[in-house]
C-alpha cells in the first residue's frame, strides 16, 4: 500500500509536468494560429506617384510575401456617370498608383518600422498606411501573453521537478537498505539500482498514458475546440502520435536522470 502511494506520488508529479508542457504547447499553437489569422488579414497600403517595380520591391525585403496593384476601376465605375469620358480618362491618368502589400509573417513593431524606412527611400512613394497603432497593441498583447505563459510554465515545471526530486529522495531512502544488502554480496551498481530504474520507467510510461487519456477525454468533450472555433482558430489539441511520444520521451528522460542522480548519490553504509 505504501509502495503504491509512492508510485502514485511520482506518477502525479510527472503527470503535472507533462500536462504543463502540453498546455504550454497548446497555447503556443493557439498563439501561432492567431498570428497566422492576423497575418492573413493584415496588409500595408502603399500610394505611389508612379508605377513601382514590383519584382524589385519583392526581392528587396524577405518579409514581403506579395505586392499587388489595387485597380481604380471600381471607384471610377461609380463616378463614371457624372463625368464625360474625356474627363474620366484625365482623372485616370492623374490618379496615383495604389498597392497592397502582404507579409510573410505577422511583423514586430521593429520589423514594421524597418520596412517602412526602406519603402520611404523610394521617392515616388507618397503614403504608407501600415495601421501601426492597432497592429502594435495587438502585437504587444500577444508578446505579453507569450511571456506570462512561458514564465508560468517555467515555474510549474521547476516546482514539479523539485517535487519529483523529493519523491526520488524518499525512494532512495526506501531502496537504500536493499541496495546496501545487494552491495554486500557484490552486486554491480546496475543490478543494485535495477529496481529503481524499472520503477522510474514504469511510472514515466504510466504518467504519459494518463496524459494521453486526459486529452482523449478533452478531445471527446469538444468544449475547448468549440471555444477556439469561435475565435476562428483551428489547432490540434493533442497529436496522439507526435505529442504522445514527445511527452513519453520527456517523462522517461526526467525520471531516468533523477534516478541516476539517486544511484550516483548512494553511498554504502559503513
Amino acid at each position: 500500500m505504501k509502495s503504491l502511494r509512492n508510485h502514485f506520488s511520482l506518477i502525479l508529479a510527472l503527470f503535472a509536468v507533462l500536462l504543463s508542457i502540453q498546455v504550454f504547447n497548446i497555447i503556443e499553437r493557439t498563439i501561432a494560429a492567431y498570428e497566422k489569422n492576423l497575418q492573413d488579414n493584415y496588409s500595408i497600403v502603399i500610394v505611389s506617384k508612379t508605377a513601382l517595380d514590383l519584382k524589385f520591391l519583392k526581392r528587396s525585403d524577405t518579409i514581403i510575401a506579395d505586392i499587388t496593384e489595387i485597380s481604380p476601376a471600381k471607384v471610377l465605375e461609380k463616378v463614371k456617370k457624372d463625368f464625360k469620358q474625356k474627363n474620366l480618362d484625365q482623372i485616370r491618368s492623374s490618379l496615383p498608383k495604389f498597392y497592397t502589400m502582404k507579409l510573410t509573417k505577422y511583423p514586430s513593431s521593429f520589423e514594421l518600422s524597418d520596412l517602412e524606412r526602406s519603402l520611404r527611400k523610394i521617392s515616388s512613394i507618397t503614403k504608407i498606411e501600415d495601421f501601426s497603432k492597432s497592429h502594435d497593441s495587438v502585437h504587444k498583447l500577444l508578446t505579453l501573453f507569450k511571456s506570462v505563459i512561458s514564465f508560468l510554465g517555467f515555474i510549474i515545471v521547476a516546482v514539479t521537478a523539485l517535487l519529483i526530486l523529493k519523491e526520488m529522495r524518499l525512494w532512495q531512502f526506501q531502496h537504500q537498505e536493499r541496495m546496501n544488502i545487494m552491495a554486500l554480496f557484490g552486486a554491480p551498481i546496475w543490478l543494485r539500482s535495477a529496481v529503481l530504474f524499472r520503477l522510474a520507467i514504469v511510472d514515466a510510461i504510466l504518467a504519459s498514458i494518463l496524459v494521453l487519456v486526459t486529452f482523449f477525454i478533452i478531445d471527446k468533450n469538444g468544449t475547448i475546440e468549440t471555444e477556439l472555433d469561435l475565435l476562428n482558430i483551428n489547432i490540434t489539441l493533442f497529436n496522439y502520435v507526435n505529442d504522445f511520444f514527445f511527452l513519453l520521451g520527456v517523462s522517461l528522460a526526467t525520471s531516468i536522470i533523477l534516478a541516476t542522480f539517486i544511484v550516483l548519490g548512494h553511498k554504502e553504509e559503513v
Binding site: 537498505e177 536493499r178 544488502i181 552491495a183 554486500l184 557484490g186 552486486a187 554491480p188
Partner: peptide, 22 residues
C-alpha cells in the same frame, strides 16, 4: 569493480539478519 567480484566469494551473516523485507 574488483571489490564486488571479491564479495561474490564471501558470505556475510549479521546480527540483524539484513534480509530484503520485500
Amino acid at each position: 569493480k574488483k571489490l564486488d567480484f571479491l564479495r561474490r566469494h564471501i558470505g556475510i551473516v549479521f546480527q540483524d539478519y539484513k534480509l530484503v523485507k520485500e
